[in-house]
Each structure stands twice: as structure tokens, then as C-alpha cells.
Amino acid sequence: MFKMTRRTTLRRMTSAMLAASLGLGFTAAAHANDTIKIGILSLTSHSPSIIAAGKGYFGEQGLDVEFVSFQAAQPMAVAIASNDIDFGMTAISGGLISLAEKGAIKIIGGALQETPEIDGQKILAAKAAYDAGLTSPDKLVGHSFGVTTQGSSFHYMAHKIADKAGFDRSEIRIVPMQKVPAVIAALKSGQIDAWSIVPNIAGALTKGPEVVEIGKVSDYIDNYQVTTVFTSTKNVTDHKDLVKRFLAGLAKGIDDYNAAYVDKTLGADDVAAISEMVHKYVYADQPMDKAAPRIAAGAMRINRNAKLNLASVEDQLKWFQSEKLVPGGVTMDDLVDTEFVETF
């Protein structure tokens, strides 16, 4: 799944091949660039770093990049904790907080965020449950709600819905299914009543007859900081400069991403060029003409300059602690290093 080697020569070679395969001018060998490994999931929301690498924004910072693909966020966090990779981007999960508590990783910036003006995550109901009266998230009392694992962002969303709608969290029955495809299968077959998910998946689901949209997550959670950028504590303390250069490169990638998919201010050719880069990692199993619209569909905003909504992060941490999913002693300082990006 991911390579464990830390031998820099090997890193150089692979990143050289990578850059070459992306068809880019590769001049790093001359100034002995630093090599960083970035963990990604094959989701559109991970494309800013792909774009930054493809357009040479990391190269401008003197960074060679190697991407390491993961199937799930959890092993990516563990790989950062063990210094096998350097940077990653995922939702705040119990696993992430536990590793932060052990002093292994830190959140250094914000990524995906719910904003009122952009289509965000949707709350879905199975058709049978909808027909039986589950027409709004406020009526989730007594219903089952699919999550991947306990302490996942889905679990958080379910409880925030309960809080806002004004019923007890325990009135929603949380059903862990481990993987997103399993949740989808259970929702489609009506074995669970409800779920919440990013708009592109939600859109695909509600096209079919089995699933109905009943609400938006942004109505229940204010300015939800869905995913964050994080790195190892070692990088934060010993390689501040590296972190800064990474974030600088990433920021330019984020701008291109937002322009291409969220604000749609780029020309068709530019979007196509960007999608070409992203396609190397996202929907790579599909031909370009099929993948391109899927990559663009339902993209959510990623914070400019990786700004971080501290209030939302704190709310999430409090929720984890109130549910006893993470130790009570974890502080915001354990979890976040605020020196690198603007926070609010």
C-alpha cells in the first residue's frame, strides 16, 4: 500500500521518475531539493497538492514531491506519526487526536470547509425510511445512521444534527460499517435509515430511486472545518522551514483548485489541463472523458492559504471528549500548531 523506505536516494529517484512521468521540466537535481512525501486518498479534495506538484509550485519552493496513495485516512495518519510520510490531509478523527495526544502529529492548516454559498455535505435518507416519515434531519429520532467507524466525521455529524434538532444524541442509532461502500450498500438496501456525505457522492446516490436528500450539513454545523492539513510533530519542531515551504506551494495549488472547480473562473483549457493532472490519482481507473466531470462534480471549497477554523476544530475536539472517544486531557495545543497559517 505504501512504501516504508526512508532512503533519500530512492526518494529522489522515484520523485524524479514521477516528475518525468508528469511531463514537467525537472531541474531539482542541480540544487539538491528537499524531498517530501505526501499522503493522498483518491478524492478530488486531495487534488491541491497534486496540482501544486504538477504546476511546479512545490518545485519553486525547492521541494521534490512523492505521492503515497492510501485507501483510508487512518493508516495515513499512522504513517505520518511514524515519519514514513510527511504531510496529509484528512477529516479530524479519533485516531488523529489520539496520535496528537501521543505527541506524534499536529494539525497545521485547514482544508475542506463547509461554507453557506457552496453546496456542501448532504444528509440522505433511505427511500423506505423517507416514505415512513423521515423527511427531515429533525426527525432522525429513533432512526439508524450509518458511519464508517465510531469517532469518524460521520459520527460527529450525526450527533451535531441531534444537538441542533434538540433531541438526545443517543436517540440516533449509530451503525458502524467500516467502509464507505458498505455504508452506501446498506443505505441503498434500506438497512440503515440515514447518512451524510460529500455532495458528489450524495448527488450520484440521489439520482437513483433508493436514496432521498433530506437536508444539508451546513444547516446543522456552522462553518464546519471538514478536513485539515497535518504533519508530524518532528517536522513542526525540527523542519519549520520545510513545513512553511510545503504550505506555500500548497496554497497556490488550492487557489488553482478553487478557481477550476469551485468558483469556476478558469477557462475550459486550463480546467482540462488541471483535470489531466488530477486524473493521475483520482478516478484513474476510468477514461479521461468519464473521469473529468466526476472530478469536477460537487467540489467543496478548500480554504484559501489553508486557513484554519479553530472554533470548529475545538468544537470537534470537545465532541470527541464528551463521547469519551479520546482521552479527556487532550488540549488544543496538543492538537494544533497555529504558527503556520491564519486561523479564525
Binding site: Q74, V78, G94, G95, S98, T148, G151, P176, L325, V326
Partner: peptide, 12 residues
């Protein structure tokens, strides 16, 4: 089993 899986997910 569910307990172990949850512990894994929470990295506990």
C-alpha cells in the same frame, strides 16, 4: 471484535 475495530479507528 467491534471493540477492537473501534480501538483501531480511534488509534486507542
Amino acid at each position: 471484535g467491534a471493540y477492537i475495530l473501534m480501538a483501531g479507528a480511534l488509534y486507542a
